[in-house]
Design a protein around this nucleic acid. Structure first.
Lengths: 158, 158
DNA sequence: CTGTAACTCAACCCGGATGGTAGACAATAG
DNA sequence: CTATTGTCTACCATCCGGGTTGAGTTACAG
């Protein structure tokens, strides 16, 4: 799962992308529009500023803006930045690779092989879509509509 | 990321799949072969037994075995079972759907639309591979080999 | 040159999840 | 009847996630 913070960061960046070229956007506007706790958003935007993703200016007409044109930022970049990796296990990450603890040798781990496939597909999607791209929205599921057939296995309670 | 527990569960199930049809496999064997802390593995296997995934027997020649033929268990099933969902955000889950807190309306959330694509691709991979399938192992990355070109964005330190 | 509306930063905080361990108990083979 | 192996509940320590506090800084307005 993406952390709440990562999700906030993505939405904030989308907001800034939408207003790109329009001068500084104030934190309060972003927070209100994106439904993000104001104080928390300050820490997120400051972090993004430290990373060089957004510019900022204080004072009366201050605010934030994208320091990089939205066409040069992919969603993959954003997630890597906030979360470190796109992969589902550390050993399947290509940029933030790390050995899993208590695992087999990497070359012998089937889980890793699988998760590497997943991470590469995920990257193919997320690195292919840029902050400037329009995104086709998807309506909420109307209860059991729209969903694939139930999986073979549906045991337990959760 | 998958939790450590989920990863252990997957490896344990792989182990049982490999020994399917050979009678009960003892916990100690699994723990040793898969490098999983013995005590922790007991809780995991018990849980899997409660879910009906594995059978168990106590006593001298006791042990665990798959209660379902490995050809009928996909990796997707396993992850759903242990983790609840394949998706990266709750609102993009198809079987364990849940509204994200502090978000936009689902129909207006670009992040959700994106993450739904990712989850569907992930599901396509993980629901297509069964515990009985051979998996082509992938050798460890030889430092910077084998990786895609560095992403456009490589800022900050981590 | 002062007031005030912004952003900045370090510090803290709380609750819940994660990753285990302890230990008493139950079944089963021999 | 005893050794072996699984079961179950409880507990625990640590970390991380999701924030908040509050004091500081910059910048524009007048």
């Amino acid at each position: 799962m993406l952390s709440q913070k990562t999700r906030y960061a993505i939405r904030a960046m989308q907001h800034l992308a939408d207003r790109h070229g329009q001068g500084p956007v104030q934190l309060a506007e972003i927070a209100a529009a994106q439904n993000i706790p104001v104080k928390f958003l300050t820490t997120i935007l400051s972090e993004l500023a430290r990373y060089g993703m957004v510019g900022s200016k204080r004072g009366k007409v201050g605010g934030y803006w994208l320091a990089i044109p939205p066409v040069d930022i992919t969603y993959g970049d954003l997630i890597r930045l906030m979360r470190g990796s796109l992969a589902l296990v550390p050993c399947a990450s290509r940029f933030a690779h790390e050995k899993c603890s208590h695992c087999l040798a990497e070359g012998d781990c089937r889980t890793r092989a699988l998760m590497l496939q997943v991470r590469d597909q995920t990257a193919a999607i997320l690195d292919g879509i840029r902050l400037s791209d329009p995104i086709e929205l998807i309506p909420p599921f109307a209860n059991d509509d729209d969903r694939p057939a139930a999986p073979k296995l549906h045991l337990g309670d959760e």
